[in-house]
Amino acid sequence: MAFLDIEHLEKSFGPMKVVKDFNLGIEKGEFISLLGPSGCGKTTVLRMVAGFETPSTGAIRIDGADMVGLRPNRRKIGMVFQAYALFPNLTVAQNVGFGLKIAGVNRTDADARVAEMLALIGLSDLGPRYPFQLSGGQQQRVALARALAPRPQVLLLDEPLSALDAKIRVSLRTEIREIQQRLGITTIFVTHDQEEALSISDRIVVMHQGIADQVGSPYEIYNRPSTRFVANFVGTLNVIEAEVTDPAKGHVRIAGAAADLGRALPSGKVSLAVRPEMISLGIHPGRETVLDGTITDVHFLGSVIRLKADIGAAVLAFDTFNATDAPPPKAGARVQLSLSAKDLLLLQD
């Protein structure tokens, strides 16, 4: 049995079923992301764990103790909200110490804990300030410290980065991950940003219309998406319609080139997907499927150059690295692309 167990969790608002048969076991110290578009039910799952919503059916257990029916203030959970939600009438230090004061921790211990937390988030000097004097990134770090101060069993992060500027978003997510690993706290992180989820999670739950489509490590989710939705939602993906020439052996034909998938396929047409970085410009050993195309687009992104080529059956996006001795092809250039059949993902609908 996992540290945090969610079994057959369902939630309906009126006739709308927003969470359907959600199951998840989270190990102690694990960092789990709930990833999905808005309205997929990820926030509702989080709010049920926190106790702000009551499940229609299902069980939530932390360390073996049943949570359903327990009020939020008895659950020993820490939570960080999207809109900071710092108490505007309290100083930074008072905000961080709020949970300790409620728990009746004595003044000396509480002050020490607050100082420790402020040091943890690198804002030791800002204790006497009020929230309105802080930047968004600072406020969210204080919110994190406030959630962690009473030593909760589980930390919930509800899109904590989405109100921040792009640059702060990246640095703060790294900081959150570092703090989480240092404290070893079990964490659920809700986000709609796949890059965020991929970069900091131990495991990701991709959600879609109230259902957990796939649960796996970032590597698994990215490289072996199990549904068309996951494949499309996580990362950039080229989708190619291919004609099956030999269903039993797994031979297909893509825009005139043959590829051997090496597994049984349905007859007729199939949808195949391939990541941009799995396609190479020119012919390379080990990438036996070669396609002819015309460059339509060149986007110079810095270290990486993203190109688009029309191969007739589809327009493929692919990447090359920047190199001083090899300028990228120009739009209209005829090119050859190569890829390996093992990198082709068969998409199920």
């Binding site: 203030n73 008895r74 939600a85 709020f98 949970g99 409620i102 919110a143 406030r146 009473p150």
Partner: peptide
């Protein structure tokens, strides 16, 4: 909600 999750009634 923040107050509640921090244990406040």
């Amino acid at each position: 909600e923040a107050a509640a999750i921090l244990g406040a009634t």
